[in-house]
Design a protein around this nucleic acid. Sequence first.
DNA 1: GTCTGCATGTAACTGGTTACATGATTAT
DNA 2: ATAATCATGTAACCAGTTACATGCAGAC
Lengths: 182, 182
Amino acid sequence: MALEHAILVSLTERAGSGYELTRRFDKSIGFFWGATHQQIYRVLKRMDEAGWVAVEHVPQDGKPDKKVYTVTQAGADEIARWLAEPTAPPELRDELAVKLRAAAFSDPDVMIAEVERRRAHHAERLALYEAMSERDFPDPNALTGSALHQFLVLRGGVSAERGFVAWCDEAAAALRREKGES
Amino acid sequence: MALEHAILVSLTERAGSGYELTRRFDKSIGFFWGATHQQIYRVLKRMDEAGWVAVEHVPQDGKPDKKVYTVTQAGADEIARWLAEPTAPPELRDELAVKLRAAAFSDPDVMIAEVERRRAHHAERLALYEAMSERDFPDPNALTGSALHQFLVLRGGVSAERGFVAWCDEAAAALRREKGES
DNA sequence: GTCTGCATGTAACTGGTTACATGATTAT
DNA sequence: ATAATCATGTAACCAGTTACATGCAGAC
């Protein structure tokens, strides 16, 4: 269970409201740990009750009030505790893999098109991560601290998406070969 | 929602009981779509009520009775319907990525050890998939039909695990470099 | 006599998704 | 007018996990 921790990490980088956190989870940290606003508000409330975060009501003109959350000492302690804990490996759960296994029941062209659609999705993601990487970290060898760590997370995305693209290409080629032979 | 479909696909390959399905979900199909026995029994019951599968009670000597499930016509129709549907891309959800981002709050050696632990996990998985690949599909270019599709799913695992291993290596090297410099 | 494997389940809980709801401001 | 953005939330539901429960057979 790590949405709590993802939020804590994000809040240590910069304090913010539930809404702002939702924006962050639409990009950057959210690429590796997704969350919707409902979930974020719920967890924020729970963490406030647990004393991991403190709230400050900030009135704004022209906009609704916002509740800005900051990490408390108890929250920082919780991050440290969690960091020292062993990390669960991610499980792959890919619907396309299950569909591929059932491809014999499908029109080959439909299956090939679906694999290609997925290839496009991953290629887009890959391009995005690579663009972010070049824009924000043009000189990787000079990086240290937080910037280095953020860069490494991005590199994880690049690596994963490259793998997916290669897989889609291999699968599409094999399905085409099979179709041609029959 | 695809556990239903993963089970249907597995049952079209071979009829079986909840227990047998649980075994299959501990390997092969389960590498790409995990499920516990409780979940499987529950979904099987639901699918029976929906008429997607039919049950046959099989008494055995020396062993408890088992309920062998087979896919009905309605179940086959459901597979076809699902195959034609667009497939949701998998979201990466990796706790290690979140931890990496918080690495500044951690002892560098602990973080490096954790990355290495994960590297070992993925290397093991990779070796397993490659061994399965060589054992079950020694001549990939000759494959067609179901065997080809199963092979392609395995290749997805190989591709994903290779990506993870490369990432762990890159991250560990960078963290070491950073540690050495400070 | 204790553990592993076969075989099936219930119950409580946690985490995540979808739908609904409100209300002001700014830009087209 | 109407849509988008800011900002917060409730409620119902679905999927998945953990713990508990039963009972027989065969191996060590």
